[in-house]
Every structure is written in structure tokens, then in C-alpha cells.
């Protein structure tokens, strides 16, 4: 995280929402207003216990209209499968503690021109959906919300407010979300937003396609761990130059190649503009960019400025200009 961008916040409230979920309210550590955000945004929270450090992304769950504080909801991970960050937040963080956060970023925005919005949430995927819901209610937009859950986080709040556009599916009571029913007979200009397990997202796309929807009206966010900031050294082989170059842990592939006299066009040097793309001939790339599509990665492209090798070595070729 860019040091200049990090915000210091203080935990001003912690609320237990359900057995597994806690809601943290964060205010600026110096009492300033927090940056405005659009619904669907998340922040990256950096914290540590002196020995381990974590950087986890959490959706902002509140109405984007309120700027005195941010609210996030953290599901406590399972000790066997989790990297421990959420467990630490649940067990070791108290009101008054300080955390570092990034400014909000949004890869799951609303299609604000939509005539109608269908929100679909599975489990902790409810978090970005909550801020969409708050915004849509405030602007009196047309929406439906379908929430399939096992853990009943936020369910009481939904039940307390009479809203026949909210549909709840308690898996522990055998209730199942019927996606075909949820998406059938929708007017032109309806957009769908789904957040939850991969299987839910896939099932939503499949149901929509079978109903004759264009898939560009289905928007999704999948919670995946942020790429590790730990970097390992590796070697890169460029057969056309007859070179083998060592890339140190703290060095990018791009700068290592430049140091070795292999000049690749570059621009943003931040994994965002695609200028420094090269072709992986052998070995596996660890992609850390925000530019290449899955298809392009599948074709062997990688961005030299941020991406690295998965293993110890990569063989690459430059693209002909």
C-alpha cells in the first residue's frame, strides 16, 4: 500500500452481529472526515501483532452518505483454513485501537442507470450488498434483495423492517434461493449484483443465461485473498537474448530486465496500463496486475512491472512491437 495514501483510523465501536460476525465502526484517528465512497467499495486493513502482519480487504457496509465513520463486518475464519487475520480482529482488537486502512476502492459498483437492481448475497457476501441497499433505499430506486445464509448476520435487521423486496433464505431451515424464479420476468434495464461463494456466482450466471439475459447485466464480486506482498527471488530466462537474469526479492522483473540491458516499453509501472506485457514461454506467472483478462493470462501474457514467478524460474519472450 502506498504510504502516502494510508489512513489511520480508530475503532470506535465493536458489535457482535452473530456468532461468527463482528461489526467494526472506524473513525479517522485525527477526527477528520473520512473520504466519500460509492456503494460496493472496500478498504484494505493493515494490522499485526508484532510477529505476524495481515492485509485484508473488507467491504464498507454502510450508506455512502455518512462520512463520520466507516463500518465493516468481519467473519471469523476457521483456524485450520484461515490465515489468522480475521481471528485476530475478533479476539485481539478492542475499541480505541488504531488500524491502518487504504482509501476505499470499488470493483463492484452499481450500474446507476439501471431501471431495477437485483441484489443477491450468499453468506458474508452480504457485506457490499448492504451498502448498495442503503444507497438504493435512499434514492428510492427499484430493487429486490435475495439473501441466502447459514449464519444469520444482519437477518434480524432485515426482519424488523417491513420490506417485501427483501427475500431471506435460511439454509438451516432448508430454505433455498431459486435463482430462476428470482430472475424471471424482469423488465428491461434490470441489473444483477451477486456476492458470495464462487458456486453462487456461477449459478447466477447460468440461470440468467438460460432465461435469455445478456450476461453484461450480471455483476459479481468474489472475495479472494489479496495477493501476498511477500516476494521471492527467481530467475528469468530470455532465449532470444541468450540471457539468464536473477530477479531479487525486492526487485521487479521489469527493473531486473532493464538492469540487464533488456529494454521493455513501460509506462505506469504499477500493473495498470499493459504497456510492459511479455509472453511466458515456460514456467508459471504469479499475476499481481489489475489489467490482463483471464483469457490474456491464459494465452501466456504477464506484466513485467508487478508480476513474478510462481516457482523459481520463468522463461519469457518479448512481444514484437
Amino acid at each position: 500500500m502506498n504510504e502516502k495514501q494510508a489512513l489511520a483510523v480508530r475503532v470506535v465501536d465493536i458489535k457482535t452481529i452473530s456468532p461468527c460476525v463482528k461489526q467494526f465502526t472506524l473513525a479517522d484517528a485525527h477526527g477528520a472526515a473520512l473520504p466519500a465512497f460509492s456503494s460496493g467499495s472496500h478498504i484494505c486493513v493493515t494490522f499485526g501483532d508484532g510477529q505476524r502482519a495481515w492485509r485484508n480487504a473488507y467491504s464498507l457496509i454502510g450508506d455512502p452518505g455518512g462520512l463520520e465513520c466507516y463500518q465493516i463486518a468481519v467473519r471469523k475464519g476457521n483456524k485450520e483454513h484461515s490465515r489468522g487475520g480475521s481471528i485476530y480482529l475478533h479476539e485481539a482488537i478492542n475499541t480505541g485501537d488504531q488500524l491502518q486502512i487504504s482509501p476505499p476502492a470499488n470493483f463492484f459498483p452499481l450500474a446507476r442507470h439501471a431501471r431495477k437492481h437485483i441484489l443477491i448475497a450468499g453468506g458474508i457476501g452480504i457485506t457490499p450488498i448492504l451498502s448498495h441497499l442503503a444507497y438504493l433505499r435512499r434514492v428510492n430506486a427499484s430493487y429486490e434483495l435475495h439473501y441466502a445464509f447459514r449464519d444469520d448476520a444482519f437477518v434480524d435487521a432485515f426482519r424488523q423492517r417491513e420490506d417485501n423486496h427483501i427475500h431471506l433464505y435460511d439454509a438451516t431451515a432448508g430454505q433455498r434461493l431459486d435463482l430462476t424464479q428470482a430472475l424471471d420476468r424482469q423488465p428491461l434495464g434490470t441489473h444483477v449484483y451477486v456476492c458470495g461463494p464462487h458456486s453462487l456466482i456461477t449459478a447466477t450466471r447460468t440461470a440468467a443465461a438460460e432465461l435469455g439475459w445478456p450476461l453484461d447485466h450480471i455483476h459479481s464480486e468474489e472475495f479472494a485473498p489479496l495477493p501476498s506482498e511477500d516476494s521471492q527471488p527467481f530467475t528469468v530466462v530470455i532465449p532470444s537474448y541468450g540471457l539468464t537474469v536473477n530477479v531479487a526479492a525486492e526487485q521487479s522483473l521489469l527493473s531486473a530486465l532493464e538492469d540487464a540491458g533488456v529494454l521493455i516499453a513501460s509506462s505506469c509501472r504499477a500493473g495498470r496500463c499493459g504497456t510492459c506485457r511479455i509472453h511466458v514461454v515456460e514456467g508459471s506467472a504469479e499475476h499481481r496486475d489489475q489489467f490482463l483478462t483471464e483469457e490474456e493470462r491464459g494465452m501466456g501474457l504477464m506484466l513485467a512491472c508487478v508480476s513474478r514467478a510462481c516457482g523459481e524460474s520463468l522463461t519469457v519472450e518479448l512481444l514484437t512491437p
Partner: peptide, 9 residues
């Protein structure tokens, strides 16, 4: 006419 049409059109 557009008011009557749906997403599968």
C-alpha cells in the same frame, strides 16, 4: 412497447 419487454429480448 418497450415498457412491456423484458430482459430476454
Amino acid at each position: 412497447a418497450l415498457q412491456m419487454e423484458e430482459m430476454d429480448t
